[in-house]
């Protein structure tokens, strides 16, 4: 009898001790949670809510239901600008996936051979990723300057004068050229991811295949490439998230309106004009419509990331 009372007392104090610890954990979590909720989670959620309102000024107050979305998808001016920006963003993303992520894989495979000086080469390849997009954009604008820029001077010097185009002034080229500048800046990131991935693959695996008579080309595609797929997935999803809200490079190289003639306008610049700077011809910010644009971008991200999660989960389950 006496023993069981002592036992329950001990359990009671253990319980109190556990409760006290939990309380302390909560106190430790509180400051981070407060800031994260107040300045990130709630604003994202509230932007969703704002997309159902209209009105001038900082806080739109007139409830309009789905009107902003209907306008965005059907009213001639909004619709054209929106789908133009959406299409351009798709092109921007496609160029990154094709050029940046392929070049990144190539560089990683070459660096992984451990050639002399690979440390220095790696440092150089990654360097532009540390610089501000704005600086990179301005710098390339000077380099691509039709009269004085180095690119056209170089083309003229090697006798290819007919290719010395005003790259950023030409609607068919501007988006491609700006995308390539962005690729130039960020290619170091996938390179480093792939390199880290490649270095975790044990050498014995490919050695064994080589002994069995596989060429190094075959050994790469049959053995290393499949093992790299998870990293390729991460690179793809990071590229996707980065590109859906890309803004700085366009702002620096083509202005907030995606010159020439909106041919480089992305969802990020479209959102900026709608919500903050005011869309041409009425230079008044439209917060409700801006929130609708942000919500659509959020949904695009959600779909993309879900597809990625679904694909990686399924592969994990199979393994």
């Amino acid at each position: 009898m006496a023993q069981s009372t002592a036992g329950s007392e001990a359990r009671g104090s253990l319980h109190r001790y556990e409760l006290r610890r939990k309380l302390i954990w909560l106190l430790f979590l509180l400051p981070a949670l407060l800031i994260y909720v107040r300045f990130m989670a709630l604003p994202l959620f509230n932007s969703l809510g704002l997309s159902f309102y209209q009105g001038t000024g900082l806080t739109p107050e007139r409830f309009v239901g789905f009107d902003n979305y209907i306008q965005l998808f059907t009213a001639p001016l909004w619709r054209d600008r929106f789908f133009n920006a959406l299409g351009n963003t798709a092109v921007f993303f496609a160029i990154h996936m094709l050029v940046q992520n392929t070049l990144g894989l190539l560089f990683a495979v070459l660096l992984a051979t451990g050639i002399k000086g690979h440390g220095l080469l790696r440092t150089i390849i990654f360097l532009p990723a540390t610089l501000s997009v704005l600086i990179i954009g301005f710098l390339w604008r000077l380099i691509l300057n039709p009269q004085w820029g180095a690119v056209n001077q170089f083309l003229k010097a090697i006798g290819l004068e007919q290719f010395a185009l005003p790259w950023l002034g030409d609607p068919t080229w501007a988006l491609i050229v700006i995308s390539l500048v962005s690729v130039w800046q960020w290619v170091g990131l996938p390179t480093m991811f792939y390199l880290a991935g490649l270095l975790t693959i044990p050498e014995e695996l490919t050695e064994a295949a080589r002994v069995d008579g596989a060429s190094s080309w075959q050994a790469f595609w049959r053995i290393k490439f499949p093992l790299l797929l998870p990293v390729i997935g991460i690179v793809a999803v990071l590229t996707f998230v980065g590109n859906v809200n890309a803004f700085d490079i366009i702002y620096a190289m083509a202005g907030a309106r995606g010159e020439p003639a909106y041919s480089t306008d992305l969802l990020g610049t479209f959102f900026y004009r709608t919500a903050i700077a005011g869309e041409h011809p009425v230079a008044i910010p439209n917060m409700g419509m801006g929130a609708a644009v942000a919500t659509v971008m959020f949904l695009i991200l959600l779909v993309g990331v879900s597809v990625w999660l679904l694909l990686t989960q399924r592969r994990g389950a199979e393994m």
Partner: peptide
Amino acid sequence: IFFIAGLMIPIRLGTINIFQI
């Protein structure tokens, strides 16, 4: 998980409300 979700969602999309705050 609530914190980690923030890795995939750009804070820029909440700009309008952040500006109001």
